[in-house]
Design a protein around this nucleic acid. Sequence first.
DNA 1: GGCCTTAATTGATCTGGGTCATCGCGCCGG
DNA 2: CCGGCGCGATGACCCAGATCAATTAAGGCC
Lengths: 241, 241
Amino acid sequence: MDMATRLENLADLGNDHPCLGCAVRELAVCGVLDADALRQFKESGPTVHYNAGDTVVFESDQATNVYSLTSGLLRLSKLLPDGRRQIAGFLFPGDFLGITMEEEHAFTAEAVAPSELCKFQRRQFDEFIERHPALERRLHAFAAHELAAARQQLVLLGRKTATERIASFLLMLEGHCHSVCANQEIAVPMSRADVADYLGLRIETVSREISRLKAHRVIQLTGRQSFRIVDRSRLKQMAEG
Amino acid sequence: MDMATRLENLADLGNDHPCLGCAVRELAVCGVLDADALRQFKESGPTVHYNAGDTVVFESDQATNVYSLTSGLLRLSKLLPDGRRQIAGFLFPGDFLGITMEEEHAFTAEAVAPSELCKFQRRQFDEFIERHPALERRLHAFAAHELAAARQQLVLLGRKTATERIASFLLMLEGHCHSVCANQEIAVPMSRADVADYLGLRIETVSREISRLKAHRVIQLTGRQSFRIVDRSRLKQMAEG
DNA sequence: GGCCTTAATTGATCTGGGTCATCGCGCCGG
DNA sequence: CCGGCGCGATGACCCAGATCAATTAAGGCC
């Protein structure tokens, strides 16, 4: 969507619309709805807030609700019986939770940072989709995009070395920095434990590899939760092999 | 879909329908189309055949076609610059190739066994979808299902041991045995190299772990490409931890 | 059937990343 | 300002699975 269309749509909302202040309106699934449909959509469910660490949905819960993330950060994770954890992905603002449309959630979704979500009853949501084919198409596009991302992550987990995983991850974080990271400072909004469980490594290995990148002047740490890329081409090169 | 509905739909086709002999008609995306739409759909593209080892689409090719697999087996794989390979998944009869709807294919699709596919021009296919919302919904469901499967595989690659990976894989193969594996004999239709690249292991490790399962009387080999499960509960237990 | 090719198995050894242990730092509360 | 706590960093050692190296077995083809 180009800037002109975007501004036009935003202007269309009028000044009492519930989605007026939403930073991810065109980015999220809602982006395809016109002002009236959007109002009806939004008013079909509440806005909910979660603090860092809170569980939004638990794996094996009935999937009675779906969500659109408007701010914050979620992680999708799964625990093995003995406590090993794998994070299947992170949800950023604009992402949709419940795209798999299964009866049960397969993964636990937890807030990594304080997060705001638009909550919808799945039953009502499904009905709404029926009446808005454009929304169905958009959800399909979202699912397709997430599938591509998940498969890319399969390559990382199945075949990449620790160094390559960290380099790939830092570049991914850079890609998610839109407005926030002016002056090239990139935020790492999750803990080392989350990074490790996302990359199929242990905390110690994540720490060591980051230190190595720092020592080789490929990145520069600007705090425990932020860094700067010093040599992007080398980082890119390290990300593959 | 229950048996009655299924037979009814099949009967509906009439006896000069191009899809009459198709073994996966209800299983594939086509399953939601009525006889007329299905005919029109099928006649919009040819049936193509590939031998084992043939490439159907190459990663980074323009995605000008999409396919529905009617028989055989495909693998979706990606190569790293130095030759390391990861298989992101296998496509079984009824599966759809091109679901991600990206402009470029992200993965190479190759025939593991002789395969038949219905081929469609993406352009025409997209138009067809526009006119048949049920098809869009079905594709969405397929994408959602593959996303769930890919995420499950992330857990395997990120956190499971070699033994757990092999056990999980053998159980997955069992799940794909519908009619073929009467008398409990389960086919392993791909090479050890393919298994290894799917599970993020080396060939030797795959071989050793299979031998171990055999030695512990959990499975029984009935040929290099087939086996029988002797102790399913133990295999299931080994698949997690 | 016998030869040749290719895949699979098995054994011996090596190593990247895991494990265990310690340390340091920043932050918060008193 | 100090003490404690939780996260992250670092060091020493270990092990699951990789690597290297034969060996064996299954087709395919005269």
